[in-house]
Amino acid sequence: MSLIDQIGTDIKTAMKAKDKVRLETLRGIKKVLLDKEVSVRPSGQTELTPEQEIEALSQIAKQRRDSIAQFTDAGRADMAEQEAIELKIIEEFLPTQLTDDEIAVIVAEVVAEVGATSPKDMGKVMGPVMQKLKGKADGKKVQAAVKASLAGS
């Protein structure tokens, strides 16, 4: 079952349960995935790959995290809470996020592989690390781990 089909089933369940927040969030996710699917059709692809689905979901989750930070800074706890609820629903469809320690291990491996020695090598390290962690870790956490690793080198 594709992710779009799974979300369609979840939409029906949310409708029956009259769970308005979940329903609206799932509809938003489905819209983003369908839009992304339409955008890849000119290249001959009929449906999204699992990687493309995770990439789209990661973007939606990142938008929610950014919104939470902005609403919190603006003193809008009610709006931040709404975004947090939506983020939790989105994260149900993403792979389990890695812990800071797991991220640090992967960062250390990549730093050794590329031979990075100073903070100037940040660009050399970030690309390969993000490839390995795509969808499994927040970019800001990864960036902080890379900075910490290179500062300690």
Score class of each variant (00 low, 15 high):
77 A>Q: 05
81 E>L: 14
2 S>D: 14
101 D>Q: 12
146 V>D: 04
66 D>T: 05
74 A>W: 07
100 D>H: 09
39 S>H: 12
81 E>H: 13
32 V>S: 04
10 D>L: 04
83 E>Y: 05
99 T>D: 08
33 L>P: 00
33 L>Q: 03
123 G>T: 00
121 D>Q: 09
147 K>F: 10
40 V>Q: 07
44 G>E: 14
89 I>A: 02
145 A>M: 11
14 A>V: 15
100 D>T: 13
134 K>M: 02
29 I>Q: 11
59 Q>R: 09
39 S>F: 09
102 E>Q: 15
35 D>L: 05
45 Q>Y: 04
120 K>C: 00
125 V>L: 04
3 L>M: 12
27 R>E: 15
85 I>M: 03
99 T>M: 12
118 S>E: 05
71 F>P: 00
132 K>N: 00
1 M>A: 12
101 D>T: 11
92 E>Q: 14
46 T>D: 08
143 Q>V: 12
89 I>W: 06
57 L>Q: 10
121 D>V: 06
53 E>G: 10
12 K>I: 05
62 K>G: 06
2 S>F: 08
97 Q>S: 13
27 R>T: 09
111 V>S: 05
52 Q>F: 08
101 D>G: 11
76 R>V: 03
130 M>P: 00
3 L>H: 05
112 A>Y: 03
114 V>A: 04
68 I>K: 02
148 A>V: 08
79 M>V: 12
19 D>F: 11
7 I>T: 11
109 E>K: 09
43 S>I: 07
99 T>I: 12
81 E>G: 12
137 A>L: 08
37 E>C: 02
37 E>Q: 13
10 D>Y: 02
31 K>Q: 15
69 A>E: 15
12 K>Q: 15
54 I>Q: 01
8 G>P: 02
55 E>M: 05
8 G>H: 06
60 I>N: 01
116 A>E: 06
37 E>W: 01
36 K>E: 13
116 A>V: 07
143 Q>I: 07
65 R>G: 03
77 A>E: 04
94 L>E: 09
13 T>G: 03
148 A>R: 14
90 I>R: 10
57 L>T: 06
139 G>E: 13
25 T>G: 09
60 I>W: 02
119 P>H: 06
24 E>A: 13
13 T>C: 06
87 L>R: 02
42 P>E: 13
92 E>G: 04
97 Q>M: 14
96 T>S: 02
73 D>G: 10
94 L>F: 11
2 S>M: 11
7 I>H: 06
43 S>R: 08
132 K>C: 00
16 K>G: 14
112 A>P: 03
109 E>S: 06
23 L>I: 07
17 A>S: 10
79 M>A: 13
44 G>N: 10
150 L>Q: 01
47 E>K: 10
4 I>V: 05
54 I>S: 01
17 A>C: 01
4 I>P: 01
144 A>K: 14
109 E>M: 05
114 V>T: 12
1 M>H: 10
151 A>H: 01
125 V>Q: 07
82 Q>V: 14
102 E>K: 06
108 A>D: 14
5 D>S: 14
135 G>L: 03
124 K>E: 05
80 A>H: 01
62 K>A: 11
138 D>C: 03
141 K>D: 11
128 P>D: 00
84 A>Q: 11
122 M>T: 02
40 V>R: 02
27 R>D: 13
78 D>N: 11
141 K>N: 14
97 Q>K: 15
139 G>K: 13
126 M>A: 12
98 L>Y: 10
